[in-house]
Design a protein around this nucleic acid. Structure first.
Length: 424
RNA sequence: GGAGGCGUCGCCUAGUACGGUCUAUGGCGCCCGCCUGCUAAGCGGGUUUGGGGUUACAGCCCCAUCGCGGGUUCAAAUCCCGCCGCCUCCGCCA
């Protein structure tokens, strides 16, 4: 949720943002009207209530006829107050409902347009020339099966399509990536957290995942709990309803959790292997900071993502995602796309969003600066999405014989092994 | 799952049997000032949060807020109902 005052102080900014996203401006008009109604209704209620309080205080000391008169008047007032409160509650709820539908205000400089209108900010590293090396690259599934690292068939048998087992070297590879990622994050000053993967509706709603993304979320109706699609949800809700110490900002957390996604809108897309699955594990960075620091913190998270990808010796691109593809919460989003040899193109491996005050307002997280209490910004960024990273490692570091070279940084976590070799 | 206890403005706490001067007490902490070689102590004042009004600012005013949501009443921290969380004990279980 954005700062409601922005509607009155700078409605044009809100309209500009909506246009950049390709969203309707009608919502802004509705909001302005609802805001006016809400404010009028609240002020009516407050006036009546003040009068009721004033008269009510006289009752205990009054006697006889005076008391009877007061009681009659306060009784009548009470009915008016109740009616005014109902009107005011309704208007406030209507305004709130509309406010929650309004996406975050996009930052200036974000490319206008939809999914394909991103800007490539930089390209790092060079994709390998497999033709020059004299062999055709295999895709991650073929490599993974031959290594005994990925078992899709049993994944489907046990859990259905888009499920998998990581086995033997596959399982060890995830654990190595986890150790490597956590070691880096801790060195960068992040506090490691293992958060719950099931959360209450308020956490899901507060992070903005019950909006446009709702069809992608698993819900357990028996308990009214949601399976998180990213540990961002629990890390954002971690400080819900709290007033943080402004001097302690920025707070940096790194979470590791399973992520569950229904992938409802993606039938037939990326069906081979573990590229798009219903469950994967992810190491996620999460930052709380002062609103004015969020662009700087965003760059910081992007820098860590680049560092991590580079440490695994992968060629990649950095994308400035277009406004129409930002999702409800983000004011800006940078994606890192790694080179995927089997598809001869770059595919998403990390994503970092600056959510400014959008999530913290919904979740009631604020910070105290001296004697002022103000909003905080939240940011999130992928450090290591296991399945995507395993895909990238297998494909980019494969060798002609089907073995996979391990980047030096992972070897200490894999008993010094420098390559994974096929078992069949 | 069963039984009981608890939830007050940063922390601790008074208030809840009996509804109204509760405009929520006191302590700690914190902030400002005074005093004082320095520090400590002492003295005085301030200190929930949100929304709104007014103002050059300080400030002042109104409404809401005693875990959350309903209800009773002219009036609810206080009475009633539901929910949530924490603690203790019992049962069951990875």
């Amino acid at each position: 949720m954005i700062d409601p005052r922005l509607l009155r102080t700078d409605p044009d900014r809100v309209r500009r943002s909506q246009r950049a996203r390709g969203e309707s401006e009608a919502l802004v008009d509705e909001l302005l009207a609802a805001d006016e109604q809400r404010r009028a209704a609240i002020s009516t209620h407050e006036e009546k209530r003040a009068e009721q309080n004033r008269l009510g205080k006289l009752v205990p000391r009054a006697t006889g006829e005076e008391r009877q008169g007061l009681l009659a008047r306060t009784k009548a007032l009470a009915a008016e107050v109740a009616a005014a409160k109902a009107t005011s509650d309704e208007a406030a709820a209507r305004f709130d409902e509309l406010m929650r539908m309004l996406p975050n205000i996009v930052h200036d400089g974000v490319p206008v347009g939809g999914e394909d209108d991103f800007t490539v900010l930089e390209t790092v590293g060079t994709p390998r020339d497999f033709a020059a090396e004299g062999f055709e690259p295999k895709d991650h599934l073929e490599l993974g099966e031959r290594l005994g690292a990925i078992d899709m068939e049993r994944g489907a048998k046990v859990s259905g399509s888009r499920f998998y087992f990581l086995t033997g070297p596959g399982a060890l590879l995830e654990l190595a990536l986890l150790q490597h990622a956590m070691a880096k994050a801790v060195a960068w000053g992040f506090t490691p957290i293992l958060p719950p993967a099931l959360v209450k509706p308020s956490a899901m709603e507060g992070t903005g995942f019950l909006g446009q993304a709702a069809q992608d979320v698993y819900h357990l109706p028996a308990d009214d709990l949601y399976l998180v699609g990213t540990s961002e949800v629990a890390l954002a809700a971690y400080h819900a309803g709290e007033i943080l110490d402004g001097a302690a900002l920025p707070l940096s957390y790194v979470g590791y959790s399973p992520c569950f996604r229904r992938e409802a809108g993606s039938y037939g897309k990326d069906t081979r292997g573990i590229f798009r699955v219903h469950w994967f594990d992810k190491v996620e960075m999460f930052v709380y900071c002062r609103p004015e620091d969020s662009p700087e913190q965003h760059q910081r998270l992007l820098g860590y993502e680049k560092d991590f990808i580079a440490s695994l010796e992968l060629p990649y691109q950095v994308l400035d995602v277009a406004a129409g593809d930002l999702g409800l919460s983000a004011a800006r989003k940078f994606d890192c796309y790694g080179w995927l040899p089997s598809q001869q193109r770059y595919r998403e491996i990390t994503s970092t969003s600056d959510c400014t005050e959008f999530q913290s307002r919904r979740l009631g997280t604020r910070a105290r600066h001296g004697d002022q209490v103000g909003p905080v910004a939240t940011l999130n960024g992928t450090l290591c999405a296991m399945t995507r990273m395993i895909i990238m490692l297998l494909e980019n570091h494969q060798q002609a014989d089907g073995s996979v070279r391990l980047p030096a940084v992972l070897r200490p976590y894999l008993g010094g092994l420098d390559a994974l070799t096929p078992v069949r």
